[in-house]
Design a protein around this nucleic acid. Structure first.
Lengths: 352, 352
DNA sequence: GTGAAAGCGCTAACAA
DNA sequence: TTGTTAGCGCTTTCAC
């Protein structure tokens, strides 16, 4: 009943010391398990801690060995996409080798979240960031510029127009084109593309690849070959159901998808509509997530070297973090594009 | 060529100030975009920052508004399991409502990692933790006790024996029993269980449920009904291939799996061996990850309310974080067990 | 516009 | 065994 309702101020080590009738140093000693404290004193301190609900500030404590924990922040767009798990795993492997720990957060396609997250990570003193940025209308890149101002190295794993920054990615236009061309060369003429979410530049790049495949043949590209689906199982399923119902009379013979999740969703829709894959419709995914190979009809897809991307991104980042400390030297931006490759499995078949 | 190779010491605001011939306060003003700095001065400071590659310490800066960013750390065991994505999403929703951000890290089944991660997160001053702990032989719970000592609230999403701690989980024994009983009641007699990894208590709980289902009938449980597989697609696939090849003459008619990933891997193996699901073998998964429903043979599985678990864990945690600050009151440990439920789809069929 | 100085919460000498 | 003190890197008054 004693202790008055203190104002919202933080409880500090001094409060505890005062309450327990000892000095700050003693409390600190208890906190850090130094063996040097008499048992009765220790007990009193512990009691005070409990009583006041004291929580030591890591920030203050850590100051002396700031290098104790090296960390890298990874900012993704959707956690429920296995794509990011692989990126993480690749980054983690390299990071661990160098004594870094990787922290993940997800913007979940929300631009405000992305801003907040990047700020937060910077405030938490991560040593560098790997970011999969959202494509944004308002082009508010302030959080990335802030990073530059604060001199915190970062590498993108999807391009941001109008920003000089390190990037590790795949040539999506080329890969998407290759996938589409594979279909065309197989004799497919009515092909459509289930495109990704609007907030992704990858979406546009993959559409562009699709388009270019056409321009290299005598087939005509038409806008209505692009069907905006999204990035998730559900998106592929729902759009698939809707599209193939609507185009019942004249369905396409092949679909390239934004990613594997969409492809799998689409396959479910087709299955449900009684349309056979690949007999009636060929399907190509993108990413080559682990499960693609595990489906009863293994998915033809574009393999993105996800683990390698994560690893490369981490390498580049760590080089910047550590190199930068040496001299103000290697400030030149690096842009690394890895090779994506079509993996033909059973969800596609040539028409001729 | 001038600037000597400084010893590895951190570059501080004072270094910048000295280099630019101004005071710390001025540098600080520049850093924080106060409008009060003359342009020529600002430029000089910026140059010094660049030159020295100065990176302001977030820790030091943040001290004044420590409450600016509230954060929760989520420690998982394997990022590439969609199970955790859903936990995260549930936690994130609640967290965001309360102004918290959720940071994820993964121990990847490595106990040393778990320790390091928890330490790190504590040092980074997260306000609380949601942890999916590894089951460990040496029972070294020091990192969790450390959390208690530092008064950082945490909630587990898998039990740790011998520790008084908040927990949100599902009754795995009951759920696993229910799944197995469903098979037995359907007339299956030769049933096996593809068990999870050794580092998981869930593994043991699910085995126990399997065992108990038998003890309630006149069927006999035998140790060789338990096949240790793992937690991943690959595990189910490889063990499945091996097991069903070896037991070609006398295969089981049903398998319950540690989780959906293992089940899907197993189905691939069976498919490859020409064994029909569910005609020849019934399969039950666990978790009900999104894709379970999307398979050509939708998976019968135990639905774990993952999103709800994440949400509940976050609620409980935030209550502890904030309640605790009020008085030293609500220190009582809470243990919440949600309901898991069998969802019958097409990968199982009754034998009678 | 800019600098000097105090203070944030904590730990690490060093004395007592 | 415990207390005193200085200092970590930064921001913020408040003079100049």
């Amino acid at each position: 009943m004693p202790s008055e309702a203190s104002t919202q101020k933080r409880v500090t080590i001094s409060d505890v010391a005062r309450y327990a009738g000892v000095s700050n140093a003693t409390v600190s000693a208890v906190l850090n398990n130094k063996g040097t404290v008499k048992d009765s004193t220790r007990r009193r301190v512990l009691e005070a801690i409990e009583k006041l609900n004291y929580r030591p500030s890591g920030a203050a404590r850590r100051r002396l060995q700031p290098t104790l924990h090296r960390t890298i922040g990874l900012v993704v767009k959707e956690v429920d996409n296995p794509y990011f798990a692989d990126i993480f795993l690749g980054a983690r492997a390299v990071a661990n080798q160098h004594g870094y720990t990787v922290l993940i957060t997800s913007s979940e396609s929300d631009f405000t979240s992305e801003h907040r997250i990047v700020d937060l990570l910077a405030d938490k003193d991560v040593d560098g960031l790997i970011i999969n940025p959202l494509l944004e209308e308002q082009a508010d890149l302030s959080h990335l510029f802030e990073l530059k101002r604060r001199n915190i190295p970062f590498v993108l794993i999807e391009n941001v127009l109008g920003l000089q920054a390190n990037i590790v990615d795949v040539d999506n236009v080329a890969a998407s084109k290759e996938a589409t061309r594979y279909l065309i060369e197989g004799g497919h003429e009515r092909i459509i593309h289930f495109a990704g979410p609007r907030y992704s530049l990858h979406t546009e790049e993959r559409i562009e690849g699709f388009r270019r495949a056409f321009s290299e043949t005598n087939l005509i590209f038409r806008e209505d070959m692009i069907v905006y689906a999204g990035a998730r199982l559900k998106d592929g399923y729902e759009k698939g159901l809707a599209y193939f119902q609507e185009h019942r009379d004249n369905p396409p013979t092949a679909v390239t998808c934004y990613n594997d999740l969409v492809a799998i969703g689409l396959m479910r829709a087709l299955h449900q509509l009684g349309i056979k894959v690949p007999d009636q419709v060929s399907i190509i995914g993108y990413d080559d997530i682990a499960i693609a190979e595990y489906l009863p009809i293994p998915l033809t897809t574009v393999r993105v070297p996800k683990t390698e991307m994560g690893a490369k991104a981490a390498e580049l980042l760590i080089r910047q973090i550590e190199g930068a400390n040496g001299r103000g030297g290697s400030d030149a931006v690096e842009r690394i594009f890895l090779q994506a490759q079509l993996v033909v499995r059973n969800s596609t078949r040539p028409l001729k």
